[in-house]
Design a protein around this nucleic acid. Structure first.
Lengths: 185, 185
DNA sequence: TACGTTGTACAGTTTTTTCTGTACGTACTT
DNA sequence: AAGTACGTACAGAAAAAACTGTACAACGTA
């Protein structure tokens, strides 16, 4: 039937349209420390009408089920995707967290919080090492270098403290008082 | 001489101390889309008393001069490192931008601004494609899917608009009114 | 209990990224 | 003009990351 042919072509067009967006998301998702194809995976699940099974994702993306499994897991870990249950369905089902403010902020906050924490610890430890060295060494030149290093570290430390404050802004949700959420129109 | 031996050991300790910090920076620098070893390179230049030449970096890190060249270039491109001139020195000299607020914010802003822009464009285009399809298709089911897709895209769009606002906060420096810079103490 | 389904650990392969050495262009020096 | 020093383009090597197929454990079903 002609109608069916036309309809199939139309579905193809839908796919194309979706793909335009998914490709772009995938291209930029690395900013959230997520790989390109996991980004595509996210996009695929995002557009799916219903929650998807691993097999469906595998079909849709033409990739191994193993990849889907690990990919989805990493998305679940950062709360961008959640597992859902449906009566009578034995397979695991997944859907994207639909609040982007939540899902993306979340990833962002976790990664950056973690990094600043680690860096701050490293600064403290480095400072300690330098102080100790300063107390034990007899070399004036070395003491001079240490002094200069400490100055640099203190500046870095100040920056990380600030960054930490910024992250808190997001963590507490205060950011939404300053930059209000936008309503879809 | 015993004193010399001791002093050498002390310099080693200085290196170790610096390394503690540099390693951590390198570990987390990927959040700024910079690779691990370019992160180490940054750290090395950061601690150097004087501006460094490519050869010095190469020695210090035990890596090829070619790598130093490309690494430094990428750091210069994102304004984390700058080239400096010193009278009588023919080689290129580099030092780190010492205002971390500037250097890091800069990288961050550029990358994210770029991503949101591209994503927003993609959303617009996808929306157009969907609207067109909606106008031409005869399938009710398809129209339903399109409607659902458009809703999702509008939500994403709202999120990106918000994100764009947030980035502007940093770009304009307004963020510092809200979260003031910290003074090193 | 035997059998089929589903998800994932793991080892090996493929792909991508990073790193190096060579070669060469440019610019300074003599 | 010839010689030397310097930075980088480019091609290939090495390393890292991503992907796949196989095998198996867990669980449900007959």
């Amino acid at each position: 039937m002609d109608n069916n042919v036309q309809e199939l072509q139309d579905y193809e067009k839908l796919k194309k349209a979706r793909d335009r967006f998914v490709s772009e998301v995938a291209k930029n998702i690395h900013l959230y420390d997520i790989s390109h194809s996991v980004g595509r995976l996210y996009g695929t699940v995002f557009f799916s009408e219903d929650a998807m099974t691993l097999d469906e994702m595998s079909d849709e993306l033409g990739m191994s089920k193993t990849s889907m499994s690990t990919g989805i897991r990493s998305l679940v870990e950062v709360n961008m995707v959640e597992r859902v249950w449906e009566k009578g369905i034995r397979k695991d089902l997944y859907k994207t967290e639909d609040d982007w403010y939540k899902s993306f902020s979340n990833v962002f906050i976790n990664r950056w919080r973690n990094a600043t924490e680690q860096n701050t610890i490293a600064i403290q430890e480095t400072k300690e090492m330098l102080h100790e060295l300063n107390d034990t060494t007899g070399s004036d030149h070395l003491k001079q270098l240490i002094k200069s290093d400490l100055t640099k570290l203190k500046q870095a430390e100040a920056y990380y403290t600030w960054l930490d404050d910024v992250i808190s802004l997001f963590e507490t949700g205060e950011i939404f008082d300053i930059v209000p959420k936008r309503e879809p129109n």
